[in-house]
Simulated scan of single mutants.
Amino acid sequence: MKTALIGAGLAIIGLVAAVVGILSPQALLELLDRVAPVLGFVIGLTIVADLAAEAGLFSWLAGIAARFSLGRVWVLWLLVVVLALLCTIFLSLDTTAVLLTPVVVLVARRVGASPLPFAFTTVWLANCGSMLLPVSNLTNLLAVHALGSPHPLDYAALVAPAAAVSVLVPLVAIAVRYRRELAATFTPVPVDAAADPVLFRVSAIVVVLLVPALVTGVAVWIPAAAAALVLIVTFALRRREALRLTLVPWGTLLFASGLFLVVAAAQALGLARVLGDVVGTGDSFGDLLRLSGGAALSANVANNLPAYLALEPVGGSPLRLVAILIGVNVGCIVTPWASLATLLWHGRLTGLGVEVPWGRFALAGLLITVVALPLAILALTFA
């Protein structure tokens, strides 16, 4: 609700800017042409993720991880790492934050393990692990346009070294901080059977087919919409009550739309010139680190979506654009509002009775950012 209200306020500001002439009709049409496919992808993928979770797919995957962890918490944690990474890379960071967080916390409790290393793993990998593919993060989908719409595999090749470093740093931090909790053992538990085997199988097939479809180079909203349609039809036949208007992420859509409008208006007023003086130019290590640091600071002050859009005009080269992505994706783990995924993650934890003080979260995120950003830029520069 708060996200929707903030988005409505931002949308009103953007519409006022259009009415008074700050945003021209042509600028609005160009903005719509750019963001409509992105928002369409969000709608389709959110519906797929929610219905797949309703069918028990994610709970089953977490149960399988617990079953094959050999009674060792650190093995279970590594399997959760793999699951979180795959979920983030192919189904987006918000899917990991919304759907995987409660699953891994409940599995940790079920085997008697501390939920904290699993909770931090999901949120940090949701953000820091969202570099590798365009579909992993909305900021990446926006950046693809500025990068000349490369094939997803070409995009992955460009960002892979930095993406690998961005994942390793938070994992090392968790392994060191929670080494005692991860060294514990437990008695393996059986995997619960799906309530509706037909829904489970259809959901599993849809997700398995969707993953490669998202990296074929076809506009990502098309396979996401097709997958959503298949699951909607299946649930209409098998479990109609699961189909509800809240499957569409209205709050997220309104929030993102408002941010897009406000940043477009700010760009029309000369925001890029001001930011250009702050973050500088050039493709050297120092220049890229300065740009990435500015992007991280902007994301934590505001949010990573407007931070990326505001800085995109001062990119100017593939390396600089990726440096911006490193800042807004990896560096957005300090303040809770820097990433929508973090807010969604915290809401799920609160509902499960897991308390994570924002002070501790901010300090841990700051330490990871200070280490990860220079290393990721180093990997980007010299790979």
Score class of each variant (00 low, 15 high):
149 S>V: 07
191 V>D: 07
263 V>P: 01
177 R>I: 08
194 A>H: 06
350 T>N: 06
323 A>K: 09
64 I>L: 15
94 D>M: 01
7 G>A: 03
254 L>T: 12
118 F>Y: 08
249 P>G: 12
228 A>M: 12
254 L>P: 08
369 T>Y: 03
71 G>C: 00
322 V>E: 00
122 T>F: 06
72 R>T: 10
220 V>R: 02
116 L>Y: 10
218 V>I: 07
377 I>W: 02
382 F>A: 11
29 L>Y: 11
142 L>K: 06
257 S>C: 08
199 L>T: 05
268 A>G: 08
324 I>E: 02
179 R>H: 14
328 V>R: 04
78 L>G: 12
179 R>K: 15
184 A>L: 06
159 V>C: 12
110 R>N: 05
350 T>A: 13
9 G>N: 10
346 H>K: 12
341 A>F: 03
273 R>K: 10
35 V>C: 05
207 V>W: 07
325 L>P: 03
281 T>C: 00
196 D>V: 03
281 T>P: 01
24 S>I: 09
196 D>F: 02
213 A>D: 05
304 N>R: 15
312 E>W: 04
368 I>K: 13
46 T>G: 15
163 A>Y: 09
262 V>C: 08
63 G>M: 10
127 N>M: 11
3 T>S: 02
190 P>H: 08
179 R>M: 09
232 I>S: 08
125 L>N: 04
329 N>H: 00
49 A>F: 13
290 R>F: 10
264 A>Q: 11
129 G>L: 07
376 A>Y: 03
61 L>F: 09
281 T>G: 03
50 D>Q: 06
330 V>C: 03
111 V>F: 12
221 W>E: 08
139 T>I: 06
101 T>P: 09
113 A>F: 02
16 V>Y: 08
93 L>Y: 04
179 R>C: 00
379 A>W: 04
89 I>Y: 06
99 L>M: 11
310 A>P: 14
157 A>W: 12
296 A>I: 10
233 V>N: 05
170 P>I: 11
98 V>P: 00
342 T>W: 14
212 P>H: 02
171 L>Y: 04
231 L>R: 05
142 L>C: 04
189 V>P: 00
151 H>V: 01
115 P>D: 06
170 P>K: 13
256 A>N: 00
347 G>S: 07
67 R>L: 10
311 L>Q: 13
261 L>G: 07
173 A>F: 15
49 A>H: 10
142 L>N: 02
257 S>P: 01
235 F>L: 11
85 L>I: 00
83 L>S: 00
305 L>F: 07
104 V>M: 05
101 T>I: 10
34 R>M: 13
254 L>V: 14
45 L>S: 08
370 V>Q: 09
346 H>S: 10
2 K>D: 01
335 T>H: 04
320 R>F: 11
263 V>F: 01
308 Y>E: 08
17 A>W: 06
2 K>W: 09
340 L>M: 12
32 L>D: 00
208 V>A: 13
239 R>F: 11
337 W>D: 07
210 L>E: 00
69 S>W: 01
284 S>I: 13
379 A>E: 08
372 A>F: 04
105 V>L: 15
196 D>E: 11
40 G>W: 01
59 S>K: 10
42 V>T: 02
163 A>Q: 04
178 Y>S: 02
145 H>D: 15
1 M>V: 13
307 A>K: 15
219 A>N: 14
72 R>S: 05
